[in-house]
């Protein structure tokens, strides 16, 4: 058993060695996703659904990097994305700064927070459960500070973004491709890290932290790097999403809104796989729409899905399909090697 504490893949697989084969899945996925709006005829409803899909997929890539690669249970995806979003909106509204300044500032704040959480966890040697509780508490602190800091954050009503109305950012089609670009960027970063020396360190520490440290992996540095990069990913999506929506509120980034969904998406798609977040996001978005009439019972469906996945189907969809494929392949013809 290996992977994040036995929940991941059976046996840690290194990414393909050749560049073409390593990045091909990203190319294919992005072409498919790029063609989706064309086939749907540019309906506003489907485009906004598509934006939500891309956003949750991007969040899940970040979570995959932090939890899947370095076994750090961050239960504060929403809070990190929200910190960047609020930071960007507040800077823009108060000081009239342009987006190209405020969004990076928001991303920087998220990266700082994420790196800080990782650093604290590493330096205090927090076990996974304690890090989970600390980050969950951090999420709730964040939400409650938003609610309490009315003058700065607008409380539960949130903030409307000054300006930006009528620009391309608010057009669903343009936004769709913007978020697609962000997702592709995240996937490329994820794969590039996987293929680097750092990625080798991730695989080693995921198997056994002590052994990895003995083999010369700087475990602390690897984990903090994952925390910083993952949080920056979350922040970039959160801040951009705020600019697109023209509005931020505590519920947009609440634990129950973001983290729960990201967990289901990644678990369904497959922890530690490149395209798991994308596949999971597609399935969850479609199922979510189909189940809309169920109302509160949708939460029950998510819960059952989580339980089923963690009980019997821990590899997630991407890996299961792949192993079926490989089994079919080996049965079809004799191996030549």
């Amino acid at each position: 058993m290996s992977g994040p504490l036995g929940l991941g893949p059976g046996g840690v697989v290194a990414p393909p060695a050749s560049s073409l084969r390593a990045y091909l899945p990203i190319v294919v996925a992005s072409v498919v996703l790029a063609l989706v709006p064309l086939s749907l005829g540019g309906s506003r409803y489907f485009l906004s659904l598509g934006v939500h899909l891309l956003v949750v997929a991007s969040y899940a890539v970040a979570f995959n990097l932090v939890f899947g690669s370095t076994s750090q249970l961050f239960l504060c995806q929403g809070a990190l994305a929200g910190a960047a979003a609020y930071c960007s909106v507040i800077l823009g509204n108060r000081y009239g700064l342009p987006l190209w300044l405020t969004i990076p500032a928001g991303v920087g704040l998220a990266a700082l927070l994420g790196g800080g959480l990782s650093w604290v966890a590493v330096s205090r040697r927090l076990e996974v459960i304690y890090l989970g509780i600390v980050t969950l508490a951090f999420s709730l602190v964040f939400t409650n500070l938003l609610l309490g800091g009315r003058e700065l954050t607008g409380g539960e009503t949130g903030l409307v973004v000054d300006g930006g109305a009528g620009t391309w950012l608010r057009s669903p089609a343009a936004a769709y491709y913007l978020f697609l670009a962000l997702l592709v960027g995240h996937l490329v970063v994820y794969r590039a890290i996987e293929r680097s020396r750092l990625g080798w360190g991730f695989r080693a520490l995921r198997d056994d932290e002590v052994a990895a440290a003995l083999a010369g992996v700087d475990v602390a540095r690897a984990k903090v790097t994952a925390g910083v990069v993952g949080a920056a990913m979350l922040g970039s999506v959160g801040a951009t999403f705020a600019a697109h929506e023209g509005f931020v509120s505590p519920t947009t980034f609440a634990f129950g809104e973001v983290d729960v969904r990201v967990l289901v998406v990644l678990a369904l798609g497959g922890v530690g796989t490149l395209l798991g977040p994308v596949v999971g996001a597609v399935v969850v978005t479609v199922v979510d729409e189909l189940l809309r009439p169920l109302g509160q019972l949708r939460l029950t469906v998510y819960g059952v899905v989580l339980v089923v996945i963690f009980l019997g189907f821990r590899q997630g969809m991407v890996r299961s399909v792949r192993s079926l494929w490989m089994r079919a392949g080996t049965r079809a013809g004799p191996r030549t090697d």
């Binding site: 994040p4 504490l5 036995g6 929940l7 249970l73 076990e127 996974v128 459960i129 989970g132 729960v260 967990l263 678990a267 939460l299 029950t300 998510y302 819960g303 059952v304 899905v305 989580l306 339980v307 963690f310 009980l311």
Partner: peptide, 15 residues
Amino acid sequence: VLLSLLLTLGVAFAA
């Protein structure tokens, strides 16, 4: 601990 945490989180949502 981790598996129980994730399982009971699922149970919590479902319930």
